[in-house]
Every structure is written in structure tokens, then in C-alpha cells.
Design a protein around this nucleic acid. Structure first.
Lengths: 208, 208
DNA sequence: TAAATATTTAAACGATCGTTTGATTAAATT
DNA sequence: AATTTAATCAAACGATCGTTTAAATATTTA
């Protein structure tokens, strides 16, 4: 799908507003104003508000799977290094697209929103790729047997998304309020990555 | 605050609807219908839709702090046992109040919603209590030094809430679709608790 | 350049939103 | 029993919602 300048302005504005105010909390007039286009252009280009949010998901969800595969299938790197890269890549991706990921968190809470089939299919594929990687590592004797891969993935995803969505609470609690949003983001990406690598490798590699 | 039968019906109905459809996605007519009361009763008793959601938070948030303190300050139990209880209690609490916790997740995403000051204060208190407990364990030599307590708490909260909010995705991926909601809940509480106890104690107690 | 197609706009559409009104009934108080 | 207060209701309020219309302007095609 190729979008022109005006369509991209609508998609970007909608993503930001849906993230911060929710789907129902955002009016098409809000979106049109933020994107600096006439209200009717949204229906004209996307058909409806519902189809607009679907377009955002379709635009965003593609690509993630191939990035993941590239990281995990690079056999020039050790299993441990590739695992580190996996964590770094995931955490970085979440914090580089905060608006879209807030949208996705909202969508997952709301079971009906239509885009959930898309999300589920993506989850399945991602879990399949990571599972295959961990199992390969187990066969090589690098990773411990008996680890619950699904739980591990949910810890990676859950921890990262939770801190991202509550990052301003987090900043206040840990005395990081003086940082700019960008500085806070950099700080969090590094510290969350290190924490999760430590934590997950503690059961995946160490601890006999 | 003491509520009569009709007020409680409104609070319960609103909590369920806010959780599944969001604040803006739920109309006061929806709430009135679900609670089987006249539309005007909501304004009559609570003033407005905004004040209704604040009443729900006020009703729910109290109590959690004291439960936590009771668990962690029981010196007849070892530090490790108390830590296990902490995890079990937290995970159980989330899954026993799924609707309210989905509401809270939504509220945290939305930075403006007014109730966020209440949520932040609660976060601060909870973090203080858990911090004090971990530090006491460190002084006794039971828990390792150098663990990032805030990150640990965010892993507990983030993992639990993420799986709770995506539990039907989780069930489908792990082939647990045939379970009833209640069976799934029981299964998840046990498995998430065990996973998190394992994971967190791996860096808190084991691993020199 | 003439015709056809695509884009843009202000205005209006009916539907639904949260809230209020004013009348009526129930309960509590004196 | 009389009076005051609380509860309940159908109806209506103005505001805003997502979407459509029809006319005007730009762009592309023949």
C-alpha cells in the first residue's frame, strides 16, 4: 500500500491521537485538525474511522517478523549473543514506536476491535520464530531444557510494554523527572534491556 | 463511602463496561441498562460519568496496601516464603479483579485522566513497602545485593498484567482454548506465580 | 485544448452523546 | 396525619459524533 503525503499525515495524526486518547476518545475532527486536512478527506481516503485504524495496523505490523528472523538466524553469532540482540531489538522497537504500541495495548484489551485477528496471527508467528531459536539452542546444549518459552516471551513483552506505558510514573519514582523524553527513552532502553537479559539468561543459561 | 444496592449495581456495571469497551466507548445508557436503573440515577448519585469512574478507583484502590503489608511483615515466615507469598498474592489479586485491572491499565496509558494522581501515589506506596522488604532481606544476607528492585517490581506487574489482558491470545497459543474462563484463570494464576517466583528468585537468591 | 477524473471544501445529515428538567411516587421526619 | 425529603422516571436539552452531499477546483488523460 502506497500512501501520498496527505494520507500519511492522516495516518500519523491518527496514530498519535488514538494512542493518547483511545479510539473512541478521538474524533475524526481531531484527526483532521491535527493532520491539517478537511474532515471529509478521511472518509474519502480510508472509508471510515474503523478502516483508518485497520490501515494503521496493517502499515505497522508488517516488517517486524522479518527483522526478528534476521536477528535470530544470523549463525555467525553465538546463541547467547543472538539472544541479547533479540532483547535489545525488541525493547528498542517498543520505545521507538511508543504511539503505535500504546494503540496495540489498547486493542488487545478490547477483544472485539477487529484488528485482534491480525494481532493474534502476528503473535503466533513471533512466538514460532522465538520458539524455534530457543529449541535450537537447547539442542546445542547452550540453553537449559525445561524453560517455559511462552512465559519468557510474555515477560519480555509484558515488562517492556508496562514500563513504556507507565514511563512517566517510572521516571518520577526513580528520580528521573529532569530528563527530556528523549533522554528518558535512551536510559530506559538500555536499563530494561540489561535487566531482561540478566533476568532471562539467569534461567536460560546459568542456574544449572 | 457506603453505597446502597442500586449504587453498587451502577459501580459494578460501569467497571465491567469500562474494562471491555473503555471509558469513551461506554455510554451512560449502556451502564444504566446493564445495572437495570434509570439513566438519570447515574447523575443523581455520582454527579457525572467522570466522577463515576473516580468513585470506582477510590473504592478499589484502598485495601491493597494493607494486604501487602500483612504479607510482607509476617516475621514468622522466612524472607523467601514471604517473597513467594508476595508473588502469589499479587498475581491472584490481578486475576480475581480482571475488569478493574483492565480499567487501570487503560487509565495508565491515558496520562490526563485525573485518576492518575491516585494511581501514582499508590504505586509509590507499594514500591516503598516492597523496597523496604527486599532491603531488609539484603541486610540479613538472604537476598543478593545489587538487584534493581524497581525493575523487578515492574517485571512482576508487567508480566502479570500483560498475560491477564491477553489471556485469550495466550490460551489459543498454548492450546488451552477448551478451558472455561474459570479453569483458565486458575491455570494462569498457578503457572504465572511459579514462573515469576523462579525467575525473580534466580537473580534475588541464587546466582551468587 | 477538451473531456474525464481526482481532489478539496463548507455545509448539512441523522444518530447518539452526557446531562437536566419537572412531575410523580416512596420514605422518613415531625 | 401532615410535611419534608429522597428516589424514580420519561422526556427533552444542546452538543458533538461519524458520515455524506453537492458544488468548486485541480489534475490527468485523450
Amino acid at each position: 500500500m502506497e500512501y501520498n503525503h496527505k494520507q500519511l499525515a492522516i495516518l500519523d495524526a491518527a496514530e498519535q491521537l488514538f494512542a493518547s486518547q483511545g479510539f473512541h476518545g478521538t474524533s475524526v475532527r481531531d484527526i483532521a485538525h491535527a493532520a491539517d486536512v478537511n474532515i471529509a478527506m478521511i472518509s474519502y481516503y480510508f472509508g471510515s474511522k474503523e478502516k483508518l485504524i485497520e490501515a494503521i495496523f496493517l502499515k505497522r505490523i508488517v516488517g517486524w517478523k522479518s527483522v526478528l528472523e534476521t536477528v535470530l538466524k544470523d549463525e555467525s553469532l553465538s546463541f547467547e549473543t543472538r539472544f541479547d540482540r533479540l532483547v535489545e531489538t525488541y525493547v528498542g522497537r517498543i520505545f521507538n514506536n511508543p504511539c503505535f504500541n500504546l494503540m496495540m495495548m489498547r486493542a488487545q484489551i478490547q477483544a472485539d476491535l477487529g484488528v485482534n485477528d491480525l494481532i493474534h496471527q502476528n503473535k503466533l508467528e513471533v512466538h514460532g520464530i522465538i520458539s524455534a531459536f530457543i529449541k535450537a539452542g537447547q539442542e546445542k546444549g547452550v540453553f537449559n531444557e525445561g524453560v517455559d518459552i511462552l512465559m519468557m516471551v510474555n515477560t519480555l513483552v509484558g515488562t517492556t510494554n508496562h514500563i513504556m506505558s507507565t514511563r512517566h510514573h517510572f521516571a518520577r519514582i526513580s528520580g528521573l523527572e529532569h530528563l527530556t523524553d528523549e533522554q528518558l527513552q535512551q536510559h530506559l532502553v538500555i536499563h530494561i534491556s540489561n535487566h531482561l537479559k540478566n533476568l532471562l539468561k539467569a534461567i536460560l543459561i546459568h542456574e544449572a
